[in-house]
Write a protein that binds this DNA or RNA. Sequence first.
DNA 1: ATTTCATTTGAAAATATTTTAAGTAAATGA
DNA 2: TCATTTACTTAAAATATTTTCAAATGAAAT
Lengths: 228, 228
Amino acid sequence: MNNSEILIIDDEVQIRKLLNITLQSNDFKVIEAASAGEGLIMAANHPPDLILLDLGLPDESGHSVLKKLREWYAKPIIILSVLSSEEDIVKALDNGANDYLIKPFRTGELLARIRSALRVTSHEDKGPLVDCNNLQIDLSARTVKKNNEIIKLTATEYTLLSLFAKNEGKVLTHHYLLQQVWGPGYIDQSQYLRVFIAQLRKKIEEDPNQPKFIITESGVGYRFVIDK
Amino acid sequence: MNNSEILIIDDEVQIRKLLNITLQSNDFKVIEAASAGEGLIMAANHPPDLILLDLGLPDESGHSVLKKLREWYAKPIIILSVLSSEEDIVKALDNGANDYLIKPFRTGELLARIRSALRVTSHEDKGPLVDCNNLQIDLSARTVKKNNEIIKLTATEYTLLSLFAKNEGKVLTHHYLLQQVWGPGYIDQSQYLRVFIAQLRKKIEEDPNQPKFIITESGVGYRFVIDK
DNA sequence: ATTTCATTTGAAAATATTTTAAGTAAATGA
DNA sequence: TCATTTACTTAAAATATTTTCAAATGAAAT
């Protein structure tokens, strides 16, 4: 099973069709955007697990789209482009692209490069078994245990908690959390955050009224601590 | 500055020479191996930050070397090969290669792909900029500790203290502090400053009546000192 | 079509922070 | 030294933020 979601940003219908069929038949979920503007909005409202970006878009340069995405988007971006000059390749890679394929590309190779990119970035999550204190978060198994009982967390709750676990001790601002969990289109929806923090505390804290793990930093954000 | 160490595993002397010069002039440290056996040993004895691996080695198939490396080596491996078949590329990527360049390659592109691979795998933990004297201010985590206990500071208190920390030893005028913390509309509200300085002292000073960290410069402003 | 579960939205109650004000202490300059 | 200015402390009033609860919406699964 795969389930990773891939956003295609490309103005050519035929390419999108081809990619869509190829990817779907390999168990990826696919969403499509036909322009830079559309792509940026879709990425912001529903961040995918990987982005395939064409450099030759009608409304805005692909390099510029790449830069805008990289201001907040940390997952893989693979460039697909007819441009084959070394200059374009180097520029794209240095602007944060993870890979660069020249059109026309071989679909088998594209799939392998997608698998590789997803493997590498998820590999980073695999801090084996990260936290302890009658609370165990296993980022590689995607499980959370309290007193050795597995706790059921929804997708959003887990994303939020894993962000905290990866940044133990640091204050994470509302802005940052909303951007990473919901996407940059939601940076002023602090209410979402409050509701989900409350749910998380209900599930992982001994006494949700006296939280020991998720500490409120009023006016700023939240901080995750594990006292050792 | 760079300092990353790269291991080249390739049997062709000319390629190794070329790579060596290119990489060294880009501030990489380079080590070379001319065969699979040699490469595996060197990698094991002194694990580099990245490996450039040729698939066409005399003593052992590159694919096999790749598999052996991946049993324990987690950092980037980039394949350099004359083999351009999709089969080889897919196989290498699925065996754990991070990237695959077909020889002859463009050096600029190789360098960019090396930078990209290193960027992705290195999760840069910012060195926490700290001040010491049983008082620790971690600007990247946004936390302040006194005697190793985290002190709760409000947003305004923290902004003020971090301003002091960033300007240790300098006298900061009322005017400047008010402008930086509250904004230019508040430059004559020195009362705010007095209240918040008092609160800060209560929280961080051993004896708030004999402040050691935040020193009053009467008529001018305040100065933050840490005696080492 | 129905049920279930997660997410979103809204609004009152509880907390925390900032501002204001008033009394006291300390520093400065003639 | 005294008069004056500047600084400190404290606590209440005013604001702002966070928590909590619950209902509405939406999406997926049967």
